[in-house]
Amino acid sequence: MQISAQFDSGNIHVIEADTPNNIILEINKDNQSDFFQWFHFKLNNNVRAEHIMTIRNAGKSAFVDGWENYQALASYDREHWFRVPTEFDGENLTITFTPDHDSVYFAYFTPYSYERHQDLLHQAQLDVDCQLQVLGQTIDGRDMSVLKVGEEGENKKVIWLTARQHPGETMAEWFMEGFIDRLLDEDDGVARALLNKAVFYLVPNMNPDGSVRGNLRTNAAGANLNREWATPSMETSPEVYLVRNKMLETGVDMFLDIHGDEALPYNFVAGCEGIPSYDERHHSLEESFKDILLAITPEFQDEFGYDKDEAGQANLTLGATWVGEQFKCLSYTIEMPFKDNDLLPDHSVGWSDNRSSLFGRDVLTAIYHIVDELR
């Protein structure tokens, strides 16, 4: 029996693995940080017996509520992922599984590899409407890439989307894959109409270093990028520094920052109610966008989510609130679940890579219906 995490986004530490029913594991902390929750490892064993894998430090992880009613994901081919029996007793997360093949992968959510990220960028640039721009490099020397789709023009809106500020929230890049695929579809009327009215700047992965390292929440320097927007630096948060400077250059008429929430089993948005400049027009835009998305897809809801900030109390170190205040524009954080959408459950796969991608495609329709109202 062998357990390994020596691959892209791998994360696990083996304490003990002497028999299939006694596998003791721990999740490694993010580099230079106390955050941890993301796991991704491979089990090799030709014994077709029940394997009991216990992650013994789950009760000390970043978001303990995330383990309640959570089911881990497994895959034999790294393409098709399914949920497996998982229990949490307040301290230990126990995965119970009898493999049908010699090798099986387990992960906190369907991984989105750095190789696939590169494919996404370089296939997109082949489209006549798309340019692949490199803003600079990360701490580990990886490119900070943005896809520019469409061209600026008089009265055209500037729309930005970013994803995976928190690298373990892989559903965010699956969302972006679906969004980009539809936006570049020349036979899609919604996409064609939007590109007549707007230019898009898309960052599918804001945190490539953290993604490869198998971090949950931080970059190579241990910085939580979604707390860096007020005063980013090239030393600790070059990812935000570079993207923020590009935004100041282009302007922003709409911003969506794509995330995943560990605990809440719903899709929802978090707005800018607490920023100093929040007014009735901003409120009207937020409500319109939510109403449109509610009409488009049953995967979205607005009953469950985060508490709204009191007036003037927004945390302006967050991407969505900093952008909303800086550019006085519609600016939302979109959150998806790690577990399932409880309003539309799928007991086999839960919330998944495919559902995230389809949700991204749906959001393009919502943007189409609100683009004329943005300015």
Rank of each mutant, 00 (worst) to 15 (best):
N205F: 08
F175Q: 03
D257H: 14
P276M: 03
I180H: 14
S9G: 00
I24P: 01
L374D: 11
Q32N: 15
Y306V: 01
P85H: 05
L121V: 14
D30H: 12
N21D: 07
P85R: 08
L318P: 04
F300K: 11
H166Y: 06
M234Y: 07
D372T: 15
P298N: 11
A107M: 11
G319S: 08
E173C: 11
F109K: 15
C130T: 12
Q32P: 00
C272H: 02
D140P: 08
D307E: 15
G251N: 09
H282S: 13
H282L: 15
F36G: 05
M234K: 08
G312M: 01
R217Y: 12
S356D: 14
N11F: 05
E79P: 02
P238V: 10
A74V: 14
W38Q: 09
E286C: 03
G10N: 06
M254C: 10
N226E: 04
R227M: 03
Q326A: 05
P232V: 08
W67K: 13
E310D: 09
S233W: 07
E173I: 06
V128G: 08
E68P: 01
M206S: 10
M336Q: 11
P337K: 12
H117V: 02
H80G: 02
M254P: 00
V240A: 13
A163L: 04
R227S: 04
I296Q: 03
